[in-house]
């Protein structure tokens, strides 16, 4: 299967590993991720004002440039903005009209693209049972916690990614790779990255709560899908510390393509 792929700015630089290992793993799994020939910033944050059309335009451009039926995302933040903008496109006629008037596309976007996170692709298209069969280096004995953060889960009616209060997709992913998933209560809370620059102390409070919760539950390492969480969990850790990896790195490791 061929999928359009939106890596996003951070995956070209600070979160290069998230992208690199995703591509290697996808190839090993027989998934073709075709990067959009043209893309810009996803918009960085989903706008708080419903009349803010401009900051959603670049997301619309990405959707418009999608050639395949599904647009795969890797970064939680990009996924959040693209998915919500796509949802708005279908629900909000005013937004649709205004954005179309501004962009003046040759062919208007028909709203048919489905924005899919790579984890959803693994769950729904490959299947975790199938994934398990492709594992060559099972991660036996490792106690791994998933840090979901907020962007993948909420608002759940739009993201419809997983149960927002008791998500299991990443735990099932970890299990498929042969490791032991450790579930902990703060895995679906915010890491605080959005205020990290403005108020480092706030960010540290969130990170400490998350890490404390993870350590108490017995996690020995964490995975995340979000460059913001990655930065924050590593840089703003104070009392507790845990090694944090992108989920794609774990996947590449298990599939035996990490060094390739």
């Amino acid at each position: 299967m061929i999928y359009s792929y939106y890596p996003g700015c951070t995956l070209k630089d600070r979160a290069r590993q998230l992208d690199l290992y995703a591509r290697a793993s996808a190839a090993a799994l027989g998934l073709e991720l075709k990067e959009l020939t043209q893309w810009q910033c996803c918009g960085a944050v989903y706008p708080a004002a419903s009349d803010d059309i401009a900051s959603r335009l670049s997301a619309v451009r990405a959707l418009m440039n999608t050639e395949e039926k599904k647009l795969v995302t890797m970064c939680s933040a990009c996924h959040h903005v693209l998915k919500r903008t796509n949802f708005d496109w279908k629900q909000d006629a005013t937004f649709r009209t205004r954005a179309t008037n501004y962009l003046q596309p040759e062919v208007p976007y028909d709203g048919s693209v489905e924005v899919v996170h790579f984890l959803e692709l693994l769950r729904d298209e490959i299947g975790f049972d199938e994934l398990k069969k492709k594992v060559v280096n099972p991660l036996t004995g490792r106690k791994i916690g998933a840090f979901y953060g907020c962007l993948l889960l909420r608002p759940s009616k739009v993201l419809s990614f997983d149960d927002p209060e008791n998500p299991t997709i990443m735990e099932n992913f970890i299990r498929a790779l042969g490791a032991e998933p450790v579930s902990y209560p703060y895995r679906n809370e915010c890491c605080g990255a959005y205020v990290a620059m403005e108020d480092q102390k706030s960010a540290q409070t969130q990170v400490e709560r998350a890490l404390n919760s993870a350590v108490a539950a017995g996690c020995e390492e964490l995975i995340t899908a979000c460059p913001l969480c990655m930065y924050n969990l590593v840089e703003n850790a104070t009392v507790h510390r845990l090694p944090v990896k992108y989920f794609t790195e774990l996947l590449a490791e298990a599939l035996g393509v990490k060094e390739a």
Binding site: C9, R14, S55, A193, Y194, M197, P227
Partner: peptide, 12 residues
Amino acid sequence: KVPQQLLMAAMR
């Protein structure tokens, strides 16, 4: 070390 996404978000 700040990810680009965060920088962009702050700008917005």
